[in-house]
Structure formats: structure tokens, C-alpha cells
Computed example of a mutant assay.
Amino acid sequence: MKKILKWVGLAVLVIGALWAASFFIKSNSKSPIEYETHKPFISSIEKKTVATGKVIPEDEIEIKPQISGIIEKIYKVEGDKVKAGDLIAVIKVVPNEQALYQARGRVNNAKVALNNAEIEYNRNKKLFDKGVVSAQDFQNLQLQYEQAKLELENAQNDYQIILKGSAGGSSSANTNIRATVDGTILEIPVEEGDQVIQSNNFNDGTTIATIADLGKMIFEGKVDEGEVGKLKVGMPLKISLGAIEDKEFDAKLKFIAPKGVEEAGAVQFKIEGDVEVDDDFMVRAGYSANASLTLEKKDSILVIPEALLQFDKETDKPYVEVAVGEQEFERRDIEIGISDGINVEIVSGLTEEDEVKQWNKTEPIKKGLEEEGEESE
């Protein structure tokens, strides 16, 4: 009886070992992950870049005084729309004492000279009427008399300009600061009572106001040196403003800087584009903006998701794994073209019928957490 039990136990052990070995072989013959596959498809790809910058007026005109003095009255405020010739401010002249004294002395000298010329003229006129003085001599005296009158008039005008800033009756007094162009007043950096300096060869002068046409705006931004070579004047831009949501403005690239500027270790090139301003939106000078530029575009090309690509560690060339059977894949080297960060162009190596392995599939985090929770329970 014991011998029979011994053989039975031995048989059970053998059968258990065979079953365990069979289970182990079957378990290892199956892939622990079933990989999904994707077929290449026909689509379009646009390679874009974004330039950051701001929107500014195409031209900003600074209004400066033609005479030094003190701001007596300001008639406009920032944001007002003006026409060329509109009065912006008036300057009160503070004359230079030395220049004023010299101008007054010139007036007095001119009066003395005119008085003397008048006496000579009147005396010789009587002699000329009697035929004692020749016509040539009388004409010379008459010319001197007329010149003396003009000299006095000029001296008096100079005196008034130094004293008041303009000659009496002048329609364009230097003390009146007027707009030189149509537009909107962007800034008035002075206040009533401020002292201003006239514009001359040695000084830019004090800016009374800055005027610009807000209907003519440009985008001013910078692009990296790696992308500037792909830009061309005339390229279309799409401008989005931080202050205006869900609205894009069309623009056209008009300028690419020939020289770059190094910023934070990278070389940046300035670009400018004419912006088509919509009358329904108020675009203010200095709005921050982003410009989207299409560097390259291809239509109706064969593409795959960029996530399917792998790269050889030695050659750094791209390849994919293509299905050749049920969960069986083989490596295939491919040639790729442009990419938009999501899809990539397939130049050669694949067809629309190929099934490409999604090699980097991962299990959802949520599922893994649920399994850990069930085990703990």
C-alpha cells in the first residue's frame, strides 16, 4: 500500500512540473503589450514660427518749439485727434536781457539814421525842384532815405520778436505751437509752467507733443537667426494682440534687419510688417503682439504622427517599425521632410498601406492606480 502511494505522489509531482513548465512557456511566448498601429495618411503641413514684439505707429511726429520760453497754456490732451494747423499750446517768451538791450539799441540807431536821411532828402528835394541838384545825386539820396526806413522797420520787428516771440500782426507766431500733421496726440510730456528750449543746430529742443496716425500701424518684432534665412519681404503675417482676444490682423512683412543683435546668448534680427487695422477695433500704440509666419507649407503629402519615429543611436537617422504579422514588426529606414511638431512628412520608405507601430505606448496611470487599490483591499 505504501508503495502504491509513493508512485501516486511521484506521478502527481511530475504532472505538476509538466503543467508549470507548459504554463511558463505559453506565458513567455506572448507579448505583455499589444502594440497599436497607425497607417500613413495624406495631409498638409505648415511649418510656422512666432515672433514676439509690439504694434507701433508707422510714423511718430514730435512737435518742438521754435523759440525758448515757458508753457503758458495747453489746449489739447493726450488722445485728442488733431488736424494740421490746430493749436496745441502757447509759449510765453522770457527774453534774454542782453539780446533785448542790443535790439533796443539797434532800433534807436535806426531812428537816428532815418531822421538824418529824412533831413537830407527834404533839403535836396527842394534844390532838385529848382534844378540846382542833378537827378543822379537826388536819386542816391532818395535810395538812402528808403533804406533807412526799411532798417528801422527791421530793427523794430527784431525787437518785438525778442520781446514777445513774434512781430506784430504775424499769422504764424513762434509762440503758438501747432500740429504739423493730421493724427492723434499720443503724448504731451510737458505741463503749463514748464520751461522749453527751442530746436536748433546744437539742441533737439523740448518735445511739446507727439502725434501719430493710428490708422497706419506696423508690427515690430524679432526672430532668431535660425529662422531669419527663411523669411522674405512680402510674406503674409498673422498678428494677434494681447489686449484684443479672438482677433487676428493681417499684415505683410516689409523689412528684415541686415544686422542681428545678440540677446541672452542668441542673435536676434528685427523685422517689421504693415498691419491692416480694422476700424471696428481701437489699436493703441505699444500693444504687445505676436506675429505668426509660415516658413514652409506643403499640401497633399504622405505623413505620419511624429511620435511614431525612432532614431538610430549611431547614425541618428529616422526609422519606424512596420507590422509584418500579428504583433510582429520589422525595422524600416525612412526619409522624412518637414514637420509641424505633430505630423512629419514621409519622403520615402512607407506607403499608405503600411501599418506603423506605436512603439512608445504606455498604460494609463489611472488604471494602474485602480489595480494597486484593489490589491491593497
Rank of each mutant, 00 (worst) to 15 (best):
F24D: 01
E272D: 03
L231H: 07
A243S: 14
L309Y: 03
E58F: 14
A89D: 02
V322F: 09
Q195A: 14
L13P: 01
N343S: 08
G273W: 01
S22A: 10
D158N: 15
I161W: 07
D279V: 08
I67W: 02
A285V: 11
L237Q: 00
T184S: 04
S43F: 13
L163R: 10
I301C: 00
V107R: 07
L369F: 08
E225Y: 13
G337M: 01
L302F: 06
E345N: 10
T315G: 12
T210M: 04
I119N: 08
N290V: 07
E227R: 15
G242F: 13
W7T: 11
E220F: 14
N157G: 01
V55A: 06
K2H: 10
E97D: 13
T294L: 02
A21L: 14
E371Y: 10
S44W: 12
E353S: 12
Y101K: 15
A307P: 10
I197Q: 13
T210C: 07
F269R: 03
S240H: 05
G79P: 05
Q327I: 09
R178W: 02
Q98M: 15
G53F: 10
I334S: 06
Q195I: 11
P318K: 00
A148V: 02
D80V: 00
F41R: 03
E328G: 11
I63M: 02
G337K: 02
V261G: 05
E262P: 09
I271A: 00
I338P: 07
H38M: 13
K254N: 09
G242Q: 08
G373N: 13
N343C: 01
I342E: 09
A209M: 02
P65A: 01
L87P: 03
G16F: 14
S240Q: 03
E370M: 10
E321S: 11
K130S: 15
V322K: 09
K73V: 04
S240W: 02
L241R: 05
S348R: 13
V50F: 11
E227M: 12
F219K: 05
T362W: 10
D80Y: 03
